[in-house]
Design a protein around this nucleic acid. Sequence first.
DNA 1: GCTGGCACTCGGTCCACCTGAGTGCCAGGA
DNA 2: TCCTGGCACTCAGGTGGACCGAGTGCCAGC
Lengths: 340, 340
Amino acid sequence: MAHDDRRLQVLRAIVQDYVSTNDPVGSKALAARYDLGVSPATIRNDMAVLEEEGYITQPHTSAGRVPTDKGYRFFVDRLSAVKPLSVAERKAIERFLDGAVDLHDVLGRSVRLLAQLTRQVAVVQYPTLSRSAVRHLELVPLAAHRLLMVLITDTGRVEQRVVEVPVETDAETVAELRSLLNAAFAGAKLAEASDKVGDLVDSAPPQLRALVAGVSATLLETLVEPSEDRLVIGGTANLARGSALDFPHTVRPLLEALEEQVVVLRLMAEVGPSTVTVSIGEENEHEALTGASFVSVGYGSGDQALGGLGVVGPTRMDYAGNIAAVRAVARYVGQLLAES
Amino acid sequence: MAHDDRRLQVLRAIVQDYVSTNDPVGSKALAARYDLGVSPATIRNDMAVLEEEGYITQPHTSAGRVPTDKGYRFFVDRLSAVKPLSVAERKAIERFLDGAVDLHDVLGRSVRLLAQLTRQVAVVQYPTLSRSAVRHLELVPLAAHRLLMVLITDTGRVEQRVVEVPVETDAETVAELRSLLNAAFAGAKLAEASDKVGDLVDSAPPQLRALVAGVSATLLETLVEPSEDRLVIGGTANLARGSALDFPHTVRPLLEALEEQVVVLRLMAEVGPSTVTVSIGEENEHEALTGASFVSVGYGSGDQALGGLGVVGPTRMDYAGNIAAVRAVARYVGQLLAES
DNA sequence: GCTGGCACTCGGTCCACCTGAGTGCCAGGA
DNA sequence: TCCTGGCACTCAGGTGGACCGAGTGCCAGC
């Protein structure tokens, strides 16, 4: 049993060493740096077992060992201690996020902050419309048959759509329509809103029915459209720091996948609030991400996440630190949004 | 005189060849590919002169010549013919931009389109607030002393700010305030708006004065704040295509500068509508951009640009093609915004 | 003023060689 | 049963020399 225990320590040491040095780590270096109480030869035996079990691998015969995805996974699940943020870091978070002037600003600052703390690529999702509640609906007449609908959610997100309406509208009608819609939808979430549409149309004065129906339809479309879930990305310059060589084959697909926001949004879709999700290397089904890890968590005050945020980086990353940073930033963002 | 003329043809051929092959170009290759009617030896003499005048340079003794910034500048100013877009490209632009659902969408599509057409990094600026006109001002009560002000401009841009007001407000007061502000500011641009504030406050009913003053102040702040000029960036993956080696020293500062939106915004500040601006290599005062060129133009229907858009890439780029693409996209974006 | 010829330069590539890190295995000792 | 020191082996990376070829500058001749 003692062997098993030591073997795990060896694995942990390998991960830590490799993450910080980026060099395959050999038995001698390990013995020298980590005080495991045994000789390099013993460590070699352990390493051979670990390799056989698939936790580590050799890039080539005469090199040290490198963790595999499986090795990182084990490390994350079982071996890494939570690494609390330093006081300076906590201060930095507060200083950075205070004074944000609107939602756009909050998320912009968050993504920069996260990129800076983790030195990875940071990703922040706008609060999902379908989980937000309607705070206010505004209608602005553009032309006789066109209205601009502006939706303001309780998270501070603002969406706009042009609605083509079948009947001509004057200022008075628009005002009436506006109060009708706000009375019906204010405070409602997507699910409730869609329930209400039928009743609302029925109960509306006959001359307004067509209008109500038109605007409501657009509203529902807007709320339900998942492609409109926006993403803020930052710290891509961090990709150009590490690995150096064979760039076109590692960094480029990653950048492309990030711009293809859908990929990241799909990953985000699974995050829960307060539980940090880590997906490592090959665990990501999207090909461009198979060399990368993704650390993410939902933010939001309630039981359901309003949106997600996280970092993307090489599998060789400081998981403990990044998990801590991601969690901390998510907590602050959740607080900020709850306040407003 | 005949010599001068041929020398310029040689310069043009060097630029074109280098841009398309990325190899320093020698006299023999030039004679073979460009039908200049003279022998390599003669071309060598011309090249020697061009080098002495600073238009081209040799990376090392036994290599061909490469254009200098000065060479590209001369090429752009005097040698490059306008390269009209293909029918397919025009179609692509239309297909790509039609069906955009709001401003965010228009600009997002534009940046992707531009990145795809030019295979460079594309940059699109949101319409500058200070040059936009107020379409509508909306006020939403958040709490007794807090209002959410939502500004909608004629270009479709939406900005929001929380306003702390000194007096308690009820729904009625807010409605009154809203119509007062809209009557005063609707259709006004920044300059006019700031003129009107004084009168408005004076002419307002006494009990509303404090409110009017508070909201107006925030409005002006919002309009004038240049840091709030937003930027959409796309196609960064294109940076990882070309040069391959010495990435950390070429690509990383560029990515950092791009995220540091201020740098790009400053460049954009100078663009005029319809005249494409090209700044090449060392002409850019910002250090990270000294190895890059920036092709930009303003968009907007009137005489003053609403905002700018452009592409950033290595000095070794297809200037003629990129200029054409940037100009075409700007024209379409201008049209789309004018329509809405 | 253009051209062909010629000597020269020098970066890139290939190859042979060496070095050192790291391993696996084995026999001996606790 | 497990750990340890020793030893032979492997192999990536670095070094240095030779060679090749692209490209140049210069010069004499047309």
